[in-house]
C-alpha cells in the first residue's frame, strides 16, 4: 500500500485548498470593494466640494435636489421618515415576534411547532416588492376605510408591512435563544411550583435575554435597510411626521425614507453631479447605521456564547 501522496494528489490538494481560500477572502474583498466604491462617490462632498455643509445636510428639512435655481440637500425629513417607520415597525413586530417565539418554543406541540416554523420561514421568503404591492393595494384600502383618511400610503402602512417583514427574523432568532435555555432550568423552576407564566417571565426571558436582544436588533437592522416595500407603502412624500400639535407623532402622514430616496432618484441623476454625490452620501450614512446595529447585535450574540 502506498503511503506517500502522488504528485497529482499534491497538486489537486493545493488547487482545492487555494480555491477555498479564495472564496473566503472574496467575501471580505467584496465588502471592502462596495464600501470603497460608495465612499469614493460620496466622499468628495465631505471634503468641502461645492461648498457642501455636513451639518446643514443632516439638520435641514429641505430636500429640493432638482431645483434649477437653488438645489437644497437637507435629509432631516428623510432621516425622520426612516426613523418613524422603523420605530413603529419595531414596536409592532417585537411583541408579536416574542409572543410567537414563546408560543412556538414553550406551548405548542411538536407537530404544530414544525408547521409554524415552516410558515414563518415562508414569510421570510416573500420578496419585498410583493410586500410593497400588498401595502400599495390591500393595506392602503384598509387604512383608508378604518381611519377615514383620504390617502392610505402612510407611516402606519409602511410600518405594518415592515413589521411583517421583520417578524420572521425576530421569531426565528428568539426561538433559538429560548430553545438554548437548558431544560434543567425549566424542570427546576416548575419543580419549585412555578406556573408556566412565572417560568417564562422569571426564568426563560432573563436567561435568553441576550439572544432576544440580538433578535430585536437584527429586526431593527432589517427595518432600517429595507427599501422597496417602504418606497411603495409610505407614499414617498418628503414630510416630517412629527410636530408640535397633538398627537405630536402623525402615523397617518405620508413620509419618505432614506433608502427609498436613493432608489427612486439615483437613476435620474448625472454621474458626478452634486445630487448624485449626495445620494451616495446618504448611502454611507445608511451603511454606518446598519453597520452599527449589526455590530452591536454581533457583540451581544458573542456575549451569549461566552456565557
Amino acid at each position: 500500500m502506498r503511503k506517500s501522496l502522488t504528485t497529482r494528489q499534491i497538486v489537486a490538494e493545493w488547487i482545492i485548498e487555494n480555491l477555498i481560500r479564495l472564496c473566503g477572502i472574496s467575501a471580505i474583498l467584496f465588502v471592502f470593494g462596495i464600501f470603497f466604491f460608495v465612499f469614493r462617490e460620496g466622499a468628495p462632498l465631505l471634503f468641502g466640494e461645492g461648498g457642501f455643509d455636513l451639518i446643514k445636510f443632516l439638520t435641514s428639512p429641505e430636500w429640493y435636489p432638482s431645483s434649477n435655481s437653488n438645489p437644497r440637500y437637507g435629509i432631516l425629513a428623510l432621516i425622520l421618515g426612516t426613523a418613524s417607520v422603523s420605530c413603529l415597525a419595531v414596536l409592532i413586530s417585537v411583541p408579536f415576534g416574542l409572543g410567537a417565539a414563546i408560543f412556538i418554543s414553550e406551548f405548542c406541540g411538536p407537530k404544530l411547532k414544525e408547521g409554524l416554523k415552516i410558515v414563518i420561514e415562508l414569510l421570510a421568503a416573500i420578496p419585498s416588492v410583493v410586500w410593497g404591492f400588498i401595502g400599495l393595494t390591500l393595506m392602503k384600502g384598509i387604512i383608508e376605510s378604518v381611519f377615514g383618511v383620504p390617502f392610505g400610503l402612510t407611516v402606519l402602512n409602511g410600518a405594518i408591512i415592515l413589521a411583517l417583514m421583520c417578524l420572521p427574523i425576530i421569531v426565528s432568532i428568539s426561538e433559538d435563544a429560548l430553545r438554548a435555555v437548558p431544560d434543567s432550568y425549566r424542570e427546576a423552576a416548575q419543580g419549585l411550583g412555578a406556573t408556566r407564566w412565572q417560568l417564562i417571565y422569571r426564568v426563560l426571558l432573563p436567561a435568553a435575554k441576550n439572544g432576544l436582544l440580538a433578535a430585536v436588533l437584527l429586526g431593527v437592522g432589517r427595518a432600517v435597510g429595507e427599501t422597496m416595500a417602504v418606497l411603495m407603502a409610505t407614499g414617498h412624500a418628503v414630510n416630517i411626521p412629527i410636530d408640535g400639535t397633538p398627537p405630536y407623532f402623525h402615523a397617518l402622514d405620508s413620509v419618505r425614507t432614506l433608502t427609498a430616496t436613493i432608489a427612486a432618484e439615483l437613476g435620474e441623476t448625472a454621474q458626478g453631479s452634486p445630487h448624485y454625490r449626495v445620494l451616495f452620501l446618504i448611502g454611507i450614512f445608511l451603511f454606518c447605521i446598519t453597520f452599527t446595529i449589526n455590530l452591536v447585535a454581533d457583540l451581544v450574540v458573542r456575549g451569549i456564547r461566552k456565557e
Partner: peptide
C-alpha cells in the same frame, strides 16, 4: 402541590439569577 414538595436534582441547577 409542587410547592409542598422540595426537590433536589442529581446535578445542581442554579437558576440564572
Amino acid at each position: 402541590y409542587r410547592r409542598r414538595i422540595g426537590m433536589v436534582a442529581p446535578l445542581p441547577v442554579g437558576l440564572p439569577m
